[in-house]
Amino acid sequence: MPTSTQSIREIVTRHPSSAKVFHRFDIDMCAQADLSLEGACRKLQLSVDQVLEKLADSEAQEGGSTAFDPETLSLARLIQHIVRIHHHCVRQELPRLAEMASKVAVQRGDRAPELVKVAELIEKLRGEMYAHIEKEEQLLFPFISQMDRESIVAHPHAQVCFRSVTHPISIMEQEHESAEHIVMELIGLTNHFEPPAWACVTHIALFAGLREYEADLRQHVHLENDVLFPRAIQLEAELKARS
C-alpha cells in the first residue's frame, strides 16, 4: 500500500497500476520522480489523501478481479461485458500508453532507438483498435443483440450491409490477428516488457501498462473469437433453419 512519504519513483516501481492514477492527476512521473507523494501533491495543490484513496482503489481493483463463466451469459449480456471492460480498456489505456511512449521515445530514443518504433506501433495499434471497436459497436454487436432478443428473426435486418453474421465476424477476426501481431512486435522490441536498469519512471510505467494491455487483449480476443462469435453463428443458423 503506497504511503505519502514514498517517492513517485518508488510507488510506480512497486505498484505499476499507480501510473494510471498519477496520469489522471497530471503528476509528472519523470519530472517529479524523486519527490515524495506528499511533496508532489503539495506542488500541484492536490489533496494527498484523495490521491492515496485513488491509489488504494486502483490496487484493490487490480487484485480483486474475479473469474466468470461467459457461457452463462446471454449474447446481449456478454456483449455488454466486452464493451464495458475491454472496449473501455482500449479507449482509456491506448491513448495513455501512446502518450507515454511518445514521451519516452523523445527522452530516451537516442539511448534505445527501438523506443521510437515502440511509439509508432502503439499509435498504429490505437488507430486499428479504435476503428475495430467502432465497427463492432455500431454494426455487429447490435445485430447479434437483436438476434438474441428476437427468437423469430430469420434474416438479417434491412439496415445492415451484410447478408450473414459470418461476414463481419470474419473481418473482426482478421483485425484481431493484426492487433495480436502488433503486440508480438512490441514484445520482441521490449524484451517481454522488461524495462532496462536505467529506465526512468515513465519508461517503467509504460512497459507495465503494455504488459497489462497485452493480457487484456488476450482475454478480449478469447471472449469474441472463442465464445461470442461461434455462438452468434450458431444462433443465426438456428433461426434461419426455423423459418
Results as ranks from 00 to 15, higher is better:
13 T>M: 05
215 A>V: 12
176 H>F: 12
55 L>C: 10
243 S>V: 10
151 S>H: 08
95 P>F: 06
173 E>N: 12
11 I>V: 00
5 T>I: 02
233 I>K: 11
88 H>Y: 12
125 L>C: 01
22 F>Y: 03
46 L>M: 02
24 R>Q: 12
137 E>R: 00
242 R>F: 03
80 Q>T: 14
119 A>Y: 04
9 R>Y: 03
127 G>F: 03
181 H>Q: 15
68 F>D: 00
142 P>V: 06
243 S>A: 13
71 E>H: 08
212 E>R: 15
156 P>W: 13
145 S>W: 09
193 F>T: 08
200 C>I: 06
236 E>D: 06
63 G>C: 04
241 A>H: 11
4 S>A: 09
27 I>H: 02
159 Q>Y: 10
179 A>N: 06
70 P>S: 04
187 I>D: 01
167 H>D: 10
83 V>Q: 15
190 T>K: 00
23 H>K: 03
95 P>V: 03
170 S>A: 13
32 Q>N: 13
110 D>H: 00
138 Q>C: 13
5 T>R: 14
28 D>N: 00
60 A>V: 05
144 I>L: 08
31 A>M: 08
218 R>C: 03
135 K>D: 10
155 H>K: 15
181 H>F: 08
187 I>F: 11
39 G>C: 07
165 V>E: 10
225 N>P: 05
8 I>C: 07
124 K>D: 15
209 G>K: 04
118 V>N: 02
101 A>P: 14
138 Q>R: 15
195 P>K: 00
176 H>K: 04
106 V>S: 01
188 G>M: 05
242 R>D: 02
205 A>E: 07
55 L>Q: 04
237 A>I: 04
196 P>K: 07
108 R>M: 05
178 S>Y: 12
148 D>W: 01
92 Q>D: 05
115 L>S: 05
106 V>N: 10
83 V>L: 12
43 K>F: 10
6 Q>V: 08
188 G>E: 05
33 A>D: 08
238 E>R: 13
94 L>I: 04
235 L>G: 01
73 L>V: 01
159 Q>T: 12
119 A>G: 00
20 K>I: 14
70 P>V: 09
186 L>T: 04
47 S>I: 00
34 D>E: 11
231 R>G: 09
45 Q>K: 14
78 L>G: 02
160 V>L: 02
197 A>V: 12
95 P>D: 07
203 H>I: 07
114 E>N: 13
171 I>D: 04
192 H>K: 14
77 R>T: 13
104 V>C: 09
241 A>R: 10
81 H>I: 13
56 A>S: 14
188 G>P: 03
217 L>Y: 06
19 A>H: 06
178 S>E: 11
188 G>N: 08
189 L>G: 00
228 L>P: 06
104 V>G: 00
18 S>H: 06
86 H>D: 03
91 R>T: 06
4 S>T: 10
9 R>C: 09
217 L>V: 02
148 D>F: 07
67 A>M: 08
177 E>P: 01
204 I>C: 08
62 E>L: 14
39 G>S: 08
